[in-house]
């Protein structure tokens, strides 16, 4: 069945030839394993007792949904998000407004380039760096807060402090991203409108609230959804910095599933947890595409 392009017709076989290879690849490496994960999640499947693999229906899902460890990990993940995201948005918006102002071109370019560094850096390295900098005895963070009169803090060794440390580190790595996205959003404000508003009022907040904010909505939506997804994905940085500890105080959802699957070897349960996480992600993706890609 030929499909109309705006001029002439393009045969279905042509479309298939162009799209086929990548779609097939993604099916084989993406969807195939996923189906296998669904199969695993319906079985008792422990890596140390492979002879005892057996079908148990929805039992794994039932235990996940009633398992406080799962909900605590999910809760912890969202706690990290609701603490770090508002801070990232506030500082990020500040930086974006700072860079949106006219003047000091060279320094502005330099600032923009430095903002690129944290988010591009290997997440595992960020975590290792955190280990080194937040160390109780040898860490520079304690030295720096010592200069302003604070006692050294046991960052990595104490449950609450470890959570604060990874939150701070998440803020360090991702505030620049938020700033750059919001800066990109600010440039979509037509300059005539912005100039006119600035003639009307001297207060920057009024300009922000009534002139710039409406144009920032897509950028804010993107930040909100992507940061949520990325926090649900967050593994490397926390794993290298705290391994989820002490206790389970920094064990986010992805770390918890990794532990159940590869350190407790319960692949069946871990797969059920992963599938539930996937469902949450799919809902987020739906939101993302509905809210942001109106034209496709």
């Amino acid at each position: 069945m030929p499909v109309n392009a705006s001029s002439g017709t393009i045969r279905r076989s042509t479309i298939l030839a162009f799209l086929g290879p990548s779609v097939v690849t993604l099916l084989v490496i993406g969807i195939g394993p996923l189906l296998y994960a669904v199969w695993t999640s319906l079985h008792y499947f422990n890596l140390t007792k492979l002879k005892k693999v057996k079908f148990i229906g929805m039992e794994n899902y039932a235990s996940v949904l009633t398992d406080s460890v799962f909900w605590e990990a999910l809760g912890r993940t969202f706690l990290l998000l609701v603490i770090s995201l508002p801070i990232q948005l506030a500082i990020g918006l500040g930086i974006a407004l700072l860079l949106h102002q006219p003047g000091v071109g060279f320094l502005k370019t330099l600032t923009r380039l430095s903002l690129v560094l944290p988010m591009a850096t290997t997440y595992a390295v960020v975590g290792l760096l955190g280990q080194v900098m937040f160390n109780l005895k040898y860490g520079v963070v304690n030295q720096l807060i010592g200069f302003v009169g604070f006692d050294p803090v046991n960052w990595i060794g104490d449950p609450t402090n470890a959570f604060i440390a990874i939150t701070f580190w998440d803020i360090w790595q991702w505030t620049p991203f938020v700033a750059l996205v919001l800066l990109a959003g600010l440039t979509t404000v037509p300059s005539e409108i912005e100039e006119a508003a600035k003639l009307e009022t001297k207060r920057w907040f009024t300009v922000l609230r009534y002139v710039q904010l409406p144009f920032l909505i897509p950028a804010l939506t993107a930040v909100l959804i992507l940061r949520t997804a990325d926090t649900l994905k967050l593994f490397d940085m926390v794993f290298t910095m705290t391994r989820g500890g002490p206790g389970s105080s920094t064990e986010l959802i992805s770390l918890m599933i990794q532990r159940v699957g590869f350190r407790s070897f319960d692949q069946g349960l871990a797969s059920a947890q992963a599938i539930i996480l996937l469902i949450i992600t799919i809902i987020l993706s739906q939101l993302y595409i509905r809210l942001l890609y109106k034209e496709v």
Binding site: G30, A37, F235, S271, L278, T281, S285, Y288
Partner: peptide, 26 residues
């Protein structure tokens, strides 16, 4: 076409642990 876009977006967002489990077994 829309479904394809959606699929790609989901790939961007899904936690690697979801695929790491079955990939390891396979």
């Amino acid at each position: 076409k829309r479904d394809l876009w959606f699929w790609f977006i989901t790939n961007r967002m899904v936690s690697p642990i979801v695929l790491a489990l079955p990939f390891f077994l396979i």
